[in-house]
Amino acid sequence: MNYSFDFSFLRDYWPMLAEGLVLTVQLALMATVLGFLLGTACAVASTSRSRILRGLVGLYVEIIRNTPLLVQLFVVFFGLSSLGLKFSATTSAVIGLTINIGAYSSEIIRAGIESIHRGQVEAGDCLALSRWQVLAAIVLPTAIEKVYPALASQYVLLMLGTSIASQISAEELTAAASRIQSDTFRPFEVFLVVAALYIALSFLMRGMFWALGQFAFTRRRRLGTPL
């Protein structure tokens, strides 16, 4: 084996990689924020008294957890266009990724809500707080704090999962890499560089989640307890 590495393609193609990287970050960021909101709403619905709401959320979560992300993206992408709705590949990718991560977020946050002692809710009720106030001030903050590390890991996985959006021709990092390697015939080098970029992004995201946790969970910061 004597393979000689050639990274010279970087000189000409780095703007394309950079564009792909930016889109990857955008996809991950939007799907994380929207998926968190969707997941929170679904987790609340799945712990509500309404059997219909609980059933609907259960159905949604089961469908998402038992189908491949790629298939979900295809269904959204081709489904929307056959309904006559014209969305760009990027928008379809955001919608598909949000629906996907929303289901996983919902399950994680629901576990957090269910771990909260009933006495906490009762204490809120006895202080004359409304049901929504109990949810907003007591249940959700403590539940999300408990499951924060699990959520953060899930969102890092989601960021890696955005590479599948290349299959519906969203020009993110992996799609850019595919085009570069078909131009340059240096697939090994191209994907090594792309792998390094994904690793860097993962570490960056973990760092950001750590900082966000320090900011959001004042008690942990003040008492120095790890999340």
């Binding site: 006495g119 906490q120 009762e122 204490a123 006895c126 001030a137 007591i138 403590t142 969970f217 008690r219």
Partner: peptide
């Protein structure tokens, strides 16, 4: 009505 239980139920966060 104010009510206090055996388990204090303070909000930990």
């Amino acid at each position: 009505v104010g009510i206090v239980f055996q388990s204090y139920n303070l909000f930990p966060h």
